[in-house]
Simulated assay, not measured.
Amino acid sequence: MDIRLLEPRDNERMAGIIRASLIEFGGNRSGLAWEDASLHDLHAYYREPGRGYWVALDDEGEVAGGCGIAEFAGSADVCELQKMYLRPSARGTGAARLLLAEALGFARGRYRQCYLETLTSMKAAERFYEKNGFAPLREPLAGSEHYACDAWYIRDL
């Protein structure tokens, strides 16, 4: 599995992976990434300073998934791990671990903490985040735009 920065040509493929994953886990509704304007042009959104988005490529060089980092609610200290989704065939391959390492490596030195929001229906994702140093929170951080998420995590960088 190779990891590289998102390119404009990846926008449609990555948006498709995100939408399919949200449908799979009941996340195709208001208050979630399903309605994010950035989903229509991930490359433009993540090329801003302090942001980045990486994709995992399978053995055929096809986009298998991705994840991003951006400032959280305008904070200079807290970033958010965003839109971390993989095709079903890429889950359990180590792609998520590689993507997370790339994203957190980028975030270190720019931010002090990394926050994320997810759904409790994404059990494997929750286990993955906890295994990788994210601690569960009782409620979202102030400034969250995804009011339908029901699981929140944070970790120090």
Rank of each mutant, 00 (worst) to 15 (best):
R87D: 13
Y85K: 02
G31F: 11
Y53L: 06
R29I: 12
G68L: 13
L32M: 15
E102A: 15
G105V: 11
L100W: 11
G31C: 08
A56F: 05
T93S: 15
R110S: 06
R91A: 03
A20E: 13
V78P: 03
G74K: 02
Y115P: 03
Y53K: 01
Y85L: 09
R97I: 06
E62A: 14
E24R: 14
D59P: 00
M84I: 15
L32T: 15
V78D: 09
W34V: 02
E80R: 02
E102H: 08
N28S: 14
S75L: 10
A73K: 01
R110Y: 08
C79P: 06
L57G: 06
A76C: 03
A107M: 11
P88C: 08
L98Q: 13
V78C: 14
G27T: 04
L39S: 05
Y45K: 04
G74R: 05
R97Q: 14
Q113Y: 14
S30V: 05
S21L: 11
F72W: 08
L22H: 03
G61P: 05
Y45M: 02
D41G: 00
A37L: 11
L100K: 01
G61R: 03
S30D: 15
R29Q: 14
Y46E: 06
L100Q: 07
L39C: 03
E102F: 02
N28E: 15
A20R: 04
I23F: 07
R108D: 04
F25K: 01
G68W: 11
Y45H: 15
E60T: 09
G94P: 07
T118V: 11
A73V: 03
Y45A: 13
A103T: 02
S89G: 00
Y53Q: 01
A96H: 06
A95Q: 05
A101S: 12
Y115I: 01
G52S: 13
E24T: 12
H40N: 12
S75M: 12
G74C: 05
G105H: 04
A37K: 05
A103L: 08
E117D: 10
A107I: 09
E60I: 00
E60H: 06
E80N: 10
V78R: 05
E48L: 14
E62W: 01
R51Q: 07
A64P: 05
C114L: 09
D41M: 04
L86D: 09
A103M: 07
T93G: 06
C114M: 13
G92D: 12
L104M: 09
G68I: 10
C67G: 15
F72E: 05
G27N: 08
R91K: 14
A90V: 10
T118N: 02
A95S: 13
P88M: 11
L98V: 00
